[in-house]
Amino acid sequence: MVRPVIGITTSRRSGWRIFPLMALNVWMAGGRARRWTDRAPAHVADVDGVIVGGGDDISPDLYGGQVVTSARLDPGRDALERRLVLEAFDQGLPVMGICRGSQMLNVALGGTLHQDAYDAYRDSDRHRTILPRKTVLIAPGTRLAAVAGGAPMKVNALHSQAVDRLGRGLRVAARDRGGMIQAIERVRDPFAIGVQWHPEHLFYARRQQGLFRALVAAAKASRQRRSQMQRVDAGAE
């Protein structure tokens, strides 16, 4: 079977560094990657699934919040990614959000963010490293638990924002030990999952590979017009 194409959004400034690593993860999972930025055409009709990658903070203008002085914004990318998420769902394509991408998934579906996550969650461990030093607790019975295992997970952390009020059709899939939301997911087709950490940097970890495998499995099911959730669940068994 031809590998499904996964469109990956990246920053104009730093995407050239991270895209090869994202593409490697997608290839290892059975797909092939296409890079998108806000300076070139990006159409969901050209792909079978979408990854919204990490990067700068999301503007609070998208959800009625107040900007903090430390925020670094990218309004062009905000507009691109919000459009792509909504179009992907309209076309029944699976979506994975990574860090900023998880936040965009939530915002695009009507949710809100904590602009300063660690001010809102004073008991959360504050790490800023690509090394897996932060512990997240996976909610039992979630799809995240099925594809990556239900035991506490060591992840990396580079974020300053976090999900506050959930968007439409989403549920919490993981929190850290201080209660901050670390993963969200849809409960029905099309498949969508968002993680606050950066699994692309942890490509050597089987549990992180499970996230990319789930997305590619859902993309294959979408191409065949079959149930994405059933395909993901079958692969997790």
Results as ranks from 00 to 15, higher is better:
Ile8Tyr: 02
Thr129Cys: 14
Gly179Leu: 05
Gly97Pro: 10
Leu21Thr: 13
Val95Ala: 00
Gly65Asn: 06
Leu113Gly: 05
Pro20Thr: 08
Leu211Glu: 00
Thr37Asn: 02
Ala217Ile: 08
Ala146Ser: 11
Arg188His: 15
Gly167Cys: 10
Gly76Pro: 11
Asp48Cys: 05
Leu21Asn: 08
Val95Met: 00
Arg77Gly: 00
Gly178His: 06
Leu215Cys: 09
Leu105Asn: 08
Tyr121Phe: 11
His114Cys: 05
Leu24Met: 14
Ala236Phe: 04
Pro152His: 00
Asp116Ile: 03
Ala139Asp: 15
Asp61Ala: 14
Val187Thr: 15
Gly150Thr: 09
Pro20His: 10
Val44Lys: 04
Arg32Pro: 04
Ala217Leu: 12
Gly111Cys: 01
Ile138Met: 02
Val26Leu: 00
Asp233Ser: 15
Ala174Ser: 07
Leu158Ala: 11
Arg225Tyr: 05
Val47Gln: 04
Leu62Thr: 10
Ala151Glu: 15
Asn106Ile: 03
His43Pro: 12
Asn25Asp: 12
Leu215Gly: 03
Ile51Cys: 07
Ala151Gly: 09
Arg126Ser: 12
Arg34Met: 08
Asp125Tyr: 08
Arg133Thr: 15
Asn25Gln: 11
Ser102Leu: 12
Val155His: 01
Glu81Trp: 03
Gly179Lys: 06
Arg72Cys: 14
Gln209Met: 11
Arg128Ile: 10
Arg223Thr: 06
Val5Asn: 04
His198Ala: 04
Gln230Trp: 08
Arg12Phe: 13
Ser11Glu: 11
Arg207Phe: 10
Ile18Tyr: 15
Tyr63Met: 03
Gly64Met: 06
Met28Thr: 06
Met96Arg: 05
Thr37Asp: 01
His198Cys: 04
Gly235Asn: 13
Pro4Met: 04
Ala192Pro: 07
Glu81Gly: 07
Ala162Leu: 02
Trp36Met: 02
Gly92Trp: 08
Ala183His: 04
Asp48Phe: 01
Gln224His: 11
Asp38Lys: 00
Ala42Glu: 00
Gln182Ala: 13
Arg72Thr: 14
Val85Ala: 09
Tyr204Asn: 14
Thr69Met: 13
Gly210Gln: 07
Arg35Leu: 01
Arg3Pro: 09
Lys220Ala: 11
Gly92Val: 06
Ala146Arg: 12
Pro60His: 06
Thr142Ala: 02
Gly7Cys: 04
Arg100Val: 01
Leu202Cys: 06
